[in-house]
Amino acid sequence: MIKYPPLPNGNAIFCDDIREEVTGKRTLVGVYNSEIILSANYPSRIPLLCVEVHFRIDPDTPEQPLGIKITQDTNGESKVVAEVEMAWPGLPVDTKFPDLHDENGRNSVQMVAVLRLHDVLVHGPCGLRAKAFFDGDEYRLGFLGVRSNAS
């Protein structure tokens, strides 16, 4: 049996760069799995870090904004390092997405955000977390650990 995650849902990909072509194709360069290892002592700066966020919703959901935040989490403290608010996509009611439906044949709408974080200051080991805020709920979409191997 094919299973689809319940809506809404999403994910985030952390990488060194995202290149966008006029044809609509994106190339993600230097994709991180679970952590970034810095070669400099703390405090250190990450010159450029990109995050591609995908968030899927039911097209019948009432119109409302989607908030995306990237936070830097250190020792129980959370600081917003980037945020964006996305408007409802405004698609016609009869829009069909044949590859984005659940086992009951319901469609979903995918919203995508590309965030470019410049000169992220890191004072010590921490985590960068991608979060979505939608319909009064917080969705955890991805996490990237940050540490240094400098001696």
Rank of each mutant, 00 (worst) to 15 (best):
G24R: 06
A82T: 01
K96W: 09
C15K: 03
N11W: 13
Q110T: 14
L38P: 04
R45L: 14
M111R: 13
P43H: 03
A113T: 03
I70Y: 00
A82M: 05
L115F: 04
I57Q: 11
G76H: 01
P43G: 04
L7W: 08
D60I: 07
V112Q: 09
Q72F: 00
T27E: 11
L28I: 02
R45K: 13
A113Y: 04
L66Y: 03
N41A: 15
D99L: 15
T27S: 11
S78Y: 00
A87N: 10
V22F: 14
Y32T: 02
E52H: 07
P43D: 02
E63Q: 11
G90Q: 07
P89K: 06
I18G: 03
F97P: 07
G76W: 00
D102M: 09
V31G: 05
I70Q: 00
G67D: 01
K79S: 00
N104G: 15
K79V: 01
L38H: 06
G67S: 02
R45H: 13
L115D: 02
A82S: 06
T74V: 12
T74W: 07
T71F: 00
I57D: 08
L49N: 01
G10H: 04
G90C: 07
E35D: 12
K3Q: 15
D16A: 08
V112F: 05
E20R: 12
A40E: 14
D73T: 02
Y4M: 15
P92H: 10
T74M: 09
F14R: 01
S34I: 08
K25F: 15
N75H: 09
V112E: 07
V114N: 12
Q110C: 13
M86V: 09
S108G: 10
E52Y: 06
F97H: 14
D60P: 02
L7P: 05
L7R: 15
R106A: 14
E83M: 07
K25Q: 14
I37W: 06
R26A: 08
F55G: 01
I36A: 11
P62I: 00
T61S: 11
D58T: 02
I46C: 03
N9H: 15
D60W: 08
I37N: 08
E103G: 15
E77M: 06
Y42H: 05
E35Y: 11
I37D: 07
N11R: 13
M111F: 04
T61Q: 08
F55E: 04
N11G: 14
I37A: 10
